[in-house]
Simulated scan of single mutants.
Amino acid sequence: MKEAGMYDDMVQCMKERVQTTPVLSNEERDLLSVAYGNAVGSRLSAWRTVSSAEQKAPDGSDDHQQAATWLRERVETEMKGLCGDVLSLLDRLLEGDNIDDEAQVFYYKMKGDYYRYLAEITEGEHKAMAKTSYEQGWVAAKPLKATNPLKLKLALNFSLLHYEILKRTDSACTLAREAFDTAVTELDGIPDPVERKYSTDIMHQLRDNLTLWQIAKRK
């Protein structure tokens, strides 16, 4: 939890920034993503660890069980608060004037991500909201090149939703395969070596996930 605290001040700064002016530069968008991504990500990691310990607590260890349950519920409360905050900020940003295609994709992808995190720790409509947000991002991403790193990252995270949360392996494989196959034919056309490397790294993740999921299907 100490790691999460390192980003809480950054979260507060970005929250105030968006509430003041709902238009962000590319650098500010990245700061928003880093702040909430690390604050929520470290708590999600803690939640997974504590939940596993809670489930594996030996019979008769009531004290350990109660301690794990208390900590899990505390982490859940913090995560719900952070996710609720960032989702509200993203809605505000998406209502801004003169928002371009990349900004729309960026914000819809983030919405999908945080609904996906909520879907992992709670029951309810978060699965459907994550799917809707990713779908809206996918529509907004149509004008972008197949090799655009943001579009590839959206495809990667959308496929993770299908596989990990919705338990739709075939849909996850189809999405990952189509994103990879389309991008690989255009990879040589990226003039910027930094962008090419970033796109290639995400494509490797898509390919690796696809390989693992196909192996799992055959078992």
Rank of each mutant, 00 (worst) to 15 (best):
A39L: 07
K219H: 14
L152S: 02
A35P: 00
E123C: 06
D8E: 15
G37N: 00
R74I: 01
G37P: 02
S51R: 08
P22E: 00
W70N: 14
H126T: 08
E95I: 03
L210W: 04
P191Q: 09
E54A: 11
Q136D: 09
Q66K: 14
V18P: 03
M110Y: 00
Q104I: 01
Y7S: 10
L166K: 05
R218C: 07
L87K: 05
I99N: 01
V194T: 15
Y114D: 02
K56L: 13
Q12G: 06
D101Y: 11
L144D: 00
H204D: 15
E178W: 13
M1K: 11
P149S: 06
L175P: 03
Q136V: 07
F180Y: 10
R196W: 02
W70R: 15
K2R: 14
Q136R: 15
L206C: 05
L93F: 07
A128Q: 15
R74K: 12
L206P: 00
D91F: 00
A140N: 06
E27N: 06
R29W: 13
D170W: 08
D62Y: 13
F158E: 06
K131Q: 15
S52C: 07
A53L: 14
E95M: 07
I99V: 10
E135Y: 08
R116F: 13
Q214A: 06
K56S: 15
V50F: 00
M203R: 03
